[in-house]
Structure formats: structure tokens, C-alpha cells
Design a protein around this nucleic acid. Structure first.
Lengths: 244, 244
DNA sequence: GCGGAGTTATGACAGGTGTCATAGCGGCCC
DNA sequence: GGGCCGCTATGACACCTGTCATAACTCCGC
């Protein structure tokens, strides 16, 4: 046990490893259609930034000064309800972009971006990005095509959030996370995302206590095990079953 | 009272009035950037269709044969949760398009479309639309720009759905409807959308009974009055207050 | 080492909300 | 007109879930 915790801690440090500037750009799917020239332009005028776990990358309502492409670690996009209650609407991992819609359309971030783990990300100034965007039809296509899945995910979460039962919502969150970021292992699917119960609660639209209760129950049933913030899902099927 | 009910019924009939084919195309904001030539193309190869209240326009999961532009009446886009429970994700009124994302990206409708009132809509075959779409950069821009607000509305609903209290969610739904489709009158803002409590419940992610209870309470407090399915909001402020 | 901060965990409790049952009302079709 | 259907309305009741309180544990800085 001791060494597993040690290994986990190493993992958390590893997340904070500085990625290669160019690699981050190249690995971002939305930008994959760009010419070498445009890549060069973006590369020379963007810069890597670091955020500690919990750090604010931008706040909703602020003017969109830059778009971000995640190099390593995880970022959550949140919105605070009128009651001050914070809700996570999206979780982004390596090579995923954030703030593109704000840049090209509203010029104001509609969501806040917060680091879930220590992470590196690339900051591309909005004017520069717009410059490349304007005369680049393929980029527009790519953005359109990535927006589709985002909308569908949003609609999916809406239906899950409305259909009552917290247990169901937490199961849905874990399954979504598993498909996006889960890594297969002997014991099951491992979620190497350092999410606290609080984070999961924000995604499922519930409270920490209830989330803990639900997950403790699953732990007793052998559906999953948690070791600090690393969750191993042993039985995806029984999670799926709780969805109906 | 008698004649008011009669007037309402007339209204319902009026909604079903057949609109002008070309007007529907011209009034759709997304298409506003098209050349006369493209307009002609769309006009000649699209056709008006009629749907009775409650009728299915398409089902989620079907292949996207056409996109629809609403001419008159209202259409809801829904998704059924794993539990069979139906959730309305969006409500569309005259001159709003549906199915565009499915056409250009997934080729499968992610949501079902159902007529909320009797309505006329324009069917534009997917291949034709894609044809126009491919070589029309401004159209892409317009689509991108309309997608932004859609995403933001979706995120907004997500936060409201997660923040507990049903009363709040119903208030939010009514306010959203009021800003989109409300018409000012002496007595307040009138919602001339023939929504049943069931429809509202689906949008707020709750049950008919609770929706009725909440709205009856407001009716007693004088916040709103309902006459069949026509809702008059007398005090938008007190609805806003319930949001926190 | 000690204390504080952050996270996980558990219990008591009240209230909101879904579920089920029932009823009235108006419209529509035969 | 009669019967059926859809919509609104109301009550009883169980139970989920948010709220508040408490505690153990780890990590970290002093």
C-alpha cells in the first residue's frame, strides 16, 4: 500500500512536467488542418503557462484575451449558479482547446476555467488566433465539427441532470470520464484524473456528502475502489445498469 | 370568459396558417448571407410540410435526411433519458432552423423533433444543404455564430438543472420563454406558445404534478395567470427573485 | 511535533419532490 | 347528447437528498 501511494504521488508530479511547446500545438485536433506557415505563426506568438491545482485560468465574464490549449493536466470549465453554487460543465484534458467560441463570437468567456490538477497550457492571444481563423476555411470546418460533439455532450448531461436520482448522475459522470480519460488495467479501468469528491459532485450537480455516500456504497459493493483521488472502476457494467 | 376561450381557439388555428415558402427562407437568420442564386437553389428544392400538434418531425437516432426551418408554430427538440423519461432541450419558434449540426457533422439526428403546436416548416434535403454549405464561407460563419448562443443556453440550463429547487427551474424556463417569445401587453408579458404543463415540466426537468403545484401557487400569488395554455406573466420581477 | 488546511467519511434530521390515486373540466368525435 | 380523451388540479405518503454536525486521516508549514 505504502508504495502505491508513493507511486500515485509521483504521478501527480509527473502531470506537472513541462510539455514541448510545439507538440501541444501539433497534437490539438482542431488545429490539425493548418498550414506549416500558420503553425509557425501560432508557435512564435503563443506561450506556455503553468497553473497550480485549483488556480484560476480565467473567470467567466472576463474579456477573452486568449484561447488555451491544454498541454498536460486537467482543466474544468465551470459556471456558478445564481445561488453561488458552482457547476462543472466540461472537463478538458491534454490537447483540448478552450475559449475558442468566446474568441470568435462573444469576446467574453461564458465559463470560468480552473485547473483541476497542476497543468501546463498554451496561451494563444485572441487577435492572433482570429487572424489565422479568418482566412482559414478548414479551421472553421474543424471547429464546427468539434462543436457538434460538445453540444451533444451538453444535451446528454442536461437529460441526465433532469432525470432525478443522484446515483444515476454520478454513475453517468464516472462513465463519461472513463470513456474520455480511463486507462485499461488488470483490475479494471483506471481514472488517472485527480478529481476530489467535490469535483465529481460539481459535475453531477449534487453535494459532496451525497457523492461520498454513493461512492462509498459502490466501494463496499466492489464496483470501484479509490486510492486518494485515483479511482479504479472494476465493473463498468453495474455502473451502466444504474443508468436504467 | 366564453369569448376569450373562443379567441384562443382562433389563435391556435391562426398558428396553422400556411406561410409563404420564400419568406421562411428569407427570414431565417442563418441563411441571411446567401447569394440570390443559392436562395433560388434552396427555394426550388425544398418544400413546405405541415405537422399537427404532437406530431413527430423526426426521431433521434434517425439519419438526417433534411434540415427544417420553422415557418409558423413551435417545435421542441427532445431527448429521452435511459429511464424513458423525456427531456426538452430546446424550443424553437418561427424562422429558427433545426438539424443543421446533424447534417454537416454527424448525419444522425441527436435529438427528436416534435411539434408543440400545429406548425408549418420547410424541409431542405441534407445533400442540397451540404452542397450550398460546402462552398459558402459566410454560411459557415453564421452557423458558428449561432452555435455559440446555443451552447451557452445549454450550459445555462445545465447549471439551473443542477441547482436543486424545482421552483427555480420552472421560473427559469418561463423567463427564458418570455425573453424569446413573450409579447408585451397591458396586463404583463403574454406567452403565446401553447405549452402544456407537461411541456414545461419536460423543460424544467421535473414532473407534471410539481409543475402544476408550483404554477398554481404563483397563480394564487398573482404572479401569473393561465388561460388554457396561454400564460400571462404579471410580475417578471418576482420570478427573477426566485432564481436567487 | 503540533496545529491547520483539505479530503474522506458517517450520522441525524427536516423538507422537498416524485409517485400514486382521484377528480373536475372542456373539447372532440361518433 | 354521450362517451372518451387530454389537461389541470389536489391530496397522501414515502424517501431521497440537502443541511448541519462531527470525526479521522494525510499532508504541510512552522
Amino acid at each position: 500500500m505504502r508504495e502505491r501511494v508513493g507511486a500515485l504521488r509521483n504521478y501527480m508530479r509527473e502531470v506537472a512536467k513541462r510539455p514541448n511547446h510545439r507538440d501541444v500545438l501539433r497534437q490539438c485536433e482542431v488545429l490539425s488542418s493548418l498550414s506549416d506557415e500558420d503553425f509557425g505563426l501560432l508557435e512564435q506568438n503563443s506561450y506556455l503557462a503553468y497553473a497550480e491545482r485549483g488556480e484560476v485560468i480565467w473567470l467567466s465574464g472576463a474579456t477573452a484575451e486568449f484561447i488555451a490549449i491544454i498541454g498536460s493536466g486537467f482543466v474544468k470549465l465551470t459556471k456558478t449558479s445564481p445561488h453561488g453554487h458552482e457547476v462543472t460543465v466540461e472537463l478538458l484534458g491534454p490537447s483540448q482547446p478552450a475559449g475558442i467560441m468566446a474568441a470568435i463570437e462573444s469576446h467574453i468567456y461564458p465559463l470560468s476555467a480552473l485547473a483541476v490538477s497542476n497543468c501546463w497550457y498554451l496561451k494563444i492571444p485572441t487577435p492572433l488566433f482570429l487572424n489565422v481563423y479568418e482566412h482559414n476555411e478548414k479551421l472553421k470546418d474543424m471547429i464546427l465539427k468539434t462543436l457538434g460533439p460538445r453540444l451533444r455532450r451538453a444535451y446528454d448531461m442536461m437529460t441526465r441532470l433532469s432525470s432525478g436520482k443522484v446515483e444515476e448522475r454520478v454513475a453517468a459522470v464516472l462513465l463519461i470520464l472513463a470513456t474520455s480519460y480511463g486507462k485499461p488495467a488488470e483490475t479494471g479501468t483506471v481514472l488517472e484524473v485527480p478529481l476530489t469528491r467535490q469535483d465529481i459532485a460539481e459535475m453531477a450537480g449534487t453535494t459532496v456528502e451525497t457523492t461520498i455516500r454513493v461512492m462509498s456504497r459502490w466501494q463496499k459493493n466492489g464496483v470501484l475502489t479509490t486510492d486518494h483521488q485515483v479511482i479504479t472502476l472494476h465493473c463498468l457494467q453495474s455502473l451502466n445498469d444504474t443508468l436504467g
